[in-house]
Design a protein around this nucleic acid. Structure first.
Lengths: 189, 189
DNA sequence: GTCTATATAGCGATAGAC
DNA sequence: GTCTATCGCTATATAGAC
């Protein structure tokens, strides 16, 4: 964001690379050395861009939020709320192999941070809450009074399927459960 | 198991205490020093009972499996498969405060181990698979051809609700989703 | 068998030359 | 702004007295 950034994109490379590593290896297991190497930045230099490791993780969460908002904005262009909700569910099958191997980037982040970093955990929770509220708005547009509960049912169904698919290394499990959820959406008034 | 165990229950105390700590703090964040202190055993002495930290974690997984088997055996005494399945779902609400605070002991273990220890992850997966197969047998006894898919739907619905309840610190979310699942079970042929 | 003291390694973070 | 060298800490694991 500064005018004189000497190697533009360095900070961004750091955040994007960290997001990928945190997803694949988890927050706890990923070291600064790995993140720096992955972004082709000397280890000590990371501290020029981030005051601490936690601040980098925080930036990763913001990066995830931006990705979520972009996806929801894309889905907003669809004509019917039902089609938007189905599009949301399909998000998790579009990269079903990666998700089966490493879990949901947001769900995993949230689960792991809840066991340690309180402030970061709340930040991660707001991103999932954003998805939840978006889904709730779609169900409300469908005329459902129980929109909030339906949004929870949708998102927890997906997150649970991701957990089991990841546990058993079973990509088909994830795909079939998302299909079931789509049929469920179709069956709603 | 040995005849001359000088302080009987020491190994058991170590495993049970570790199971509790791993649940509350996660596998990665929990240190041997904490486990030893929690079980009132000197740190170095842990290595008399376990060759390595991983072996202790492995024993914790076995301990979890024993708890699961005991619970399923208790549920087996119920007269109808539907009542057994509802009892299974209620397992997660009987300690809903702990589960909201720290997640599902099995789900969390599996999710975390999948990001690192391959051998341990497979071991943890077998415990969840045991629950899945048990539930599948109940659905089959209900006369359902799609028993396997229904078992996945049941367990993933629960695991997803646990993730969201843990993420938002919302115990009511977990309870209401389990109630919804029980109504769903009631509605089945 | 029990326990203390310690070896060894890897982490996040910092100092300071350039 | 960039990078190297290193500090200080904490973790697992071991050696060896008792």
């Amino acid at each position: 964001m500064t005018d004189l950034d000497p190697r533009p994109g360095k900070r961004e490379r750091l955040v994007a690379g960290a997001a990928d590593l945190l997803h694949r290896q988890g927050v706890q297991r990923t070291t600064l050395a790995q993140i720096a190497q992955h972004a082709d930045v000397p280890q000590g230099n990371v501290y020029y861009y981030f005051k601490s490791r936690d601040e980098l993780v925080d930036a990763v969460i913001e990066h995830r939020r931006a990705m979520v908002r972009a996806e929801l904005a894309r889905l907003d262009k669809r004509r019917t709320p039902k089609s938007r909700l189905k599009g949301l569910a399909e998000t998790w099958t579009q990269s079903s192999d990666t998700i089966t191997s490493h879990g949901c980037p947001l769900g995993g982040l949230s689960y792991e941070l809840n066991k340690s970093h309180d402030g970061l955990a709340e930040h991660a929770a707001t991103v999932l809450r954003e998805i939840l509220h978006w889904a709730e708005a779609q169900f409300r547009e469908l005329g459902r009074r129980d929109a909030a509960a339906l949004a929870v049912e949708l998102l927890s169904g997906i997150q649970g399927a991701v957990l089991l698919a990841n546990t058993f290394g079973d990509e088909a499990l994830l795909i079939s459960q998302v299909r079931r959820i789509e049929r469920w959406l179709d069956s709603l008034g």
